[in-house]
Write a protein that binds this DNA or RNA. Structure first.
Lengths: 158, 158
DNA sequence: CATACACGATACTTTTAATGTTACGTGATA
DNA sequence: TATCACGTAACATTAAAAGTATCGTGTATG
């Protein structure tokens, strides 16, 4: 027992493809906040190293949630539609589909076997607590704070 | 901001295929603890609703860690090789390969873009803390405690 | 009003890791 | 020696995110 906890991401030496929708949207939103006028899906896609269709697909959730707006035609693109103070990282997570957070979990949540149910109960308890922490932390940070962190980081680099 | 946290597993209505190696191995180990003599990979596979090759593949990690032993030939199979008090859920997690815990994460951990790095820093901080909690909780529970929980649950059902 | 622009949406393909499956080898026991 | 049980390699399947091609719709501009 009692092995030491390794930090996040140190378990595998190969590259793991995580769900990066939250991370990407945060990246985009901060850029949009520092950008005059609309940003096109093409420009955003180049920023993210991906495809405009992926951008539209992912940002659709943000639009439906009212965090951004999209305009068609000449001079169109994406603009921020809600003050950054009013949007938390959790809001963005939810807006992009609120994907599952954990890669591990029980095989069969509704097991017949009593032993399996006992295992599930224990694991689910642990996962629930970690999820609560994660969501609380994401909910406690607004896009505005994230932007301020970035500005502070830039100033520190001077 | 301030949306309420939904409990674990409630975000999706379709079935999500999690990495179930930890959960499965805990299930198996508790059964083995309550079982006289070796259990064959075939019997375990029937218990888990899977294939004996999957069982051998996954249990290989437990064997290499010294938590179980395997015997060939007539009357062979898998037996527990270490007291349940000495093995934590975290030990089992590590023994099955210590798979990644989170399904979300940054797209590109080593970004050139300063905005992206700021996002990554924030997200990684949250994930690191949640991971620390998760690993600490897994490390704090031994297989023996899990087995006792199960016994208590059974007694309560009388 | 015609044209280029930009999003909206659909229908795919690709990718990755876990899981499932088949087949064959090795050692142990009756 | 025949059967049992694990060890291993190789390959197929699956699921979700991500990538891609293509078309439709609305919009501003010349």
């Amino acid at each position: 027992m009692g092995a030491l906890a390794k930090p996040y991401g140190s378990m595998k030496d190969h590259v793991v493809r995580n769900d990066s929708r939250l991370s990407r949207m945060l990246h985009v939103l901060l850029h949009m906040a520092r950008h005059e006028g609309p940003m096109t899906s093409d420009a955003i896609a180049r920023m993210l190293g991906t495809n405009p269709v992926v951008v539209r697909r992912t940002m659709a959730g943000l639009r439906d949630a009212g965090y951004v707006r999209s305009e068609k035609g000449h001079g169109g693109g994406w603009v921020i539609a809600k003050p950054l103070e009013k949007v938390s990282l959790l809001d963005v997570h939810r807006a992009v589909g609120g994907p599952r957070l954990f890669a591990i979990g029980p095989e069969n949540p509704k097991a017949d076997c009593a032993v399996e149910r006992a295992v599930n109960t224990a694991l689910e308890g642990v996962l629930r607590d970690a999820e609560a922490l994660l969501l609380a932390r994401l909910g406690a940070v607004s896009l505005a704070e994230l932007a301020r962190d970035f500005d502070a980081y830039c100033d520190a680099a001077d």
